[in-house]
Amino acid sequence: MSTLLVIGLGIVGLAVLAVGADQLVVGAGRLATVLRVAPVIVGVVVIGLGTSAPEFVVSGVAAVRDDAGLALGSLVGSNILNVTLILGVVAIVSPVVVRSSVPVREAPLMVASVAIFGAFALVGMKFVAGVLLAVLTVGALVLLVRLSRVPPDDPLPDDVAAFVEPSPPPGRWWVEAVRTLLGLAATLGGAQLLVANASTLAHRWGVSDTVIGFTLLAGSTALPELTTAVQAQRRGQGDLMVGNLLGSNLFNSLIGGAVVGLAAGEDTIAPFGFAAVTAMVGAGVLAWLLLKRGNRITRPEAAVLLCSYALMLPLLISANP
């Protein structure tokens, strides 16, 4: 198979993944509304889990295929990219303002989740680690819902409602059920195609799976976060934009890590590079500290985030030739 064909198939996989994840999110959101699930749950699933779905699906597929470097590299790279490149690009265009609760609540929870995932990645992901991260995922979801303090019968907040599609008529719920299942199938199929061809390219070009993971795959699977961030900032919803990026890192670390650990089964996925894990945790801490300074990300601070990403990437590539 020619290299050009491999690249083409990878692009097709990315397109199928993006469309499938989008339809999965839309279908799940509409079904949740029809089934009268609490609005805050809709918000968390659609915006937080929904935009993170490509990351942990790709990582799970890569882990099953024994591509450990791709599996962990995609999660680590996405966690770095979200709070440096994406946040920096959005804030350099228009300064981001958030409420005081974000640096106090979501940001430290995100940093803690990333640090726990990083610790497991350093010693080698195992089935037990996957189970522990799955338990922590449930705990984090419960905590986020409790902290939201939104009564079950309240309408969706404006910043969340802007991203939730109108619900279908009650009699057409099966259409959204089919949409959700097809979206899930497309997401899994697209992820398989993307991972397989990314791995092939890595081997042909003599590049490690890890580098492909935290560059090509991380950038590809971060597209939903980038799109949501741009739309939220255009609407003046700084809290939603930052919350989506922080929530994505939280779910990438907990759910993504759980999927990789559980997929490992009786095997142990080799420890990940110290430099990459340190960069991932450091990026999260840097974003938290900048938000904590004045509940905003100014243009100079956005430049700091962009420079951090520009400095981290060559170091990560050189550390994982």
Rank of each mutant, 00 (worst) to 15 (best):
A310Q: 02
I255G: 06
R172D: 15
R149I: 08
V25Q: 04
E225K: 00
G13L: 02
V230I: 15
A140R: 11
V40R: 14
N295G: 09
L250R: 01
L81I: 08
A287K: 01
G183C: 11
G88T: 02
G236D: 07
I86R: 00
P103G: 10
V131K: 10
L24Y: 06
I7P: 00
G256C: 05
V42P: 00
L24T: 08
E301F: 02
R105C: 13
V242N: 08
T298W: 02
G50N: 00
V281Q: 04
L289M: 10
A222C: 04
L313W: 02
V12E: 05
A185I: 08
V259F: 04
A68M: 06
F214N: 08
L194V: 10
G77A: 08
V207K: 08
V34M: 07
V83H: 02
A270I: 11
G284H: 04
A161R: 14
Y309V: 01
V98M: 09
L143D: 10
G243Q: 05
V12S: 09
V45Y: 08
S248P: 00
A264Q: 07
A303N: 04
A32N: 02
A232M: 08
L17H: 03
V114H: 11
V34G: 05
R204Y: 10
I269C: 01
P157N: 02
L184E: 09
L72I: 14
A263T: 03
P151G: 02
V61N: 03
V150N: 13
L72W: 01
V104T: 14
A140L: 13
N82Q: 10
A202E: 05
C307V: 15
A63H: 00
G213R: 07
A196N: 15
A310M: 02
F274V: 15
Q23D: 15
G29M: 06
G139P: 10
E266F: 07
S148M: 12
V89S: 01
A229E: 00
A270M: 12
S52G: 07
T51D: 03
V42L: 12
G118M: 09
V102Q: 07
G77S: 07
H203T: 13
A32V: 05
G20R: 07
V40F: 14
T187K: 03
T210M: 09
I86C: 00
I269K: 06
L9K: 08
F56E: 12
R299K: 14
D153S: 14
V123G: 05
L31E: 00
L290Y: 01
S167D: 11
D158Y: 05
G10A: 10
A263L: 06
R30I: 14
S59D: 03
